[in-house]
């Protein structure tokens, strides 16, 4: 395959490899580092994490092994990271916003402040429907939900996932109901919609874009407050055209570990993010191709970036009756 992407990738790999020296960082790992992806292999988190792992390998001069441990809305894999020694050798990857809501839905007793976040991308969700369904516009889909309460089936990656909070935010804003069908990850949820098992999916753009480009999904709207152009799909209308303002559901992605890592490990990763990740061409190209936005952040900036979505998700989930306590008990103010 002599595709442009491949040539570009190879050239980049060579380019990035040149200044690589593992000696500049205060922490030098002596054994391979493990990143646990709490979702199935091949999904969007898995892919971007493997690209990220390659960048980290170049920076640290040590192998970075990616393991998939899916299940229970991603909480099983993250719990295993928490249980492993807090030494910088075991990380989790994915959407850190869920760390802020696990405790609320009774999945995992943790708080987002207990984790150290390193972000690399921010992704919107899309409203995609199977092309055989009659819904041509977002308005028609909302009408159908009104006409058949609790009957329009929506595939998501489980409680608290981006797809789930998106559909909850929309239906709550409009006073509608729907049928929630959860899958093991964003990819299986999208495939179920392509296959016609469910009518709608509200998963991330990265997970839907390829099927949408091939005409196997019809994209009705992008969940944002302004139109967004995506390669191969043109300009997508924002959901707010139909719903008015709804809570923020932008999803940040990255890797994270317990916040009480040794100081030299934290300093090392801060430096890597500052110097390498924020200017990584490989990650940038990957992001553009997959319908997402490249964005590197760490430390307080990362926590601040994620906070609005956590707040919105927490109250959306609470209003949906899926929480075991009030977000206020966790100190999450009402937006």
């Amino acid at each position: 395959m002599r595709s442009v992407a491949f040539v570009a990738f190879a050239a980049l790999a060579a380019l990035v490899a040149a200044p690589a020296s593992a000696g500049d960082y205060p922490w030098q790992p002596t054994k391979p580092i493990t990143i646990i992806v709490p979702w199935a292999a091949g999904g969007s988190t898995d892919q971007v994490t493997r690209v990220l792992a390659g960048e980290l390998e170049l920076a640290l001069g040590q192998k970075v092994v990616v393991i998939n441990q899916s299940g229970a809305s991603g909480s099983i894999g993250k719990r295993n990271v928490w249980r492993a020694p807090h030494d910088g050798y075991t990380w989790a990857a994915g959407a850190p916003k869920m760390l802020g809501t696990y405790k609320l839905v009774g999945l995992f007793d943790t708080a987002i402040e207990d984790w150290l976040l390193y972000l690399d991308a921010v992704t919107p969700t899309l409203i995609g429907v199977n092309p055989d369904t009659p819904y041509q516009t977002m308005g028609e889909l909302l009408d159908a939900m009104r006409a058949r309460p609790g009957q329009v089936s929506v595939a998501t990656a489980g409680v608290g996932s981006s797809g789930h909070t998106t559909i909850e935010a929309i239906t709550q804003a409009m006073g509608l109901t729907y049928k929630n069908v959860s899958y093991d990850g964003g990819n299986p949820a999208v495939i179920a919609t392509v296959a016609g098992e469910t009518e709608v999916t509200t998963q991330l753009s990265t997970e839907q874009i390829e099927m949408a480009r091939a005409g196997r999904l019809r994209i009705l709207a992008v969940v944002a407050d302004r139109p967004i152009e995506m390669v191969g799909l043109g300009v997508l209308p924002p959901i707010t055209d139909w719903t008015g303002p709804i809570p923020n559901t932008l999803t940040h992605f990255g890797m994270f570990a317990p916040a009480d890592l040794p100081a030299e490990v934290i300093r090392t990763f801060d430096m890597i993010w500052e110097e390498r990740i924020s200017s990584s061409q490989a990650l940038n190209d990957y992001a553009e191709d997959r319908g997402t936005v490249f964005m590197a952040a760490f430390g307080d900036a990362a926590q601040e970036a994620v906070a609005p979505t956590v707040r919105a998700d927490a109250w959306t989930l609470h209003a949906a009756g899926r929480t075991v306590m009030s977000p206020e008990e966790l100190g999450i103010p009402k937006p």
């Binding site: 049928k179 949906a320 009756g321 899926r322 929480t323």
Partner: peptide, 9 residues
């Protein structure tokens, strides 16, 4: 029952 979960799940 309190979490408005679909009873078939």
């Amino acid at each position: 029952e309190t979490l408005s979960v679909n009873p078939y799940t």
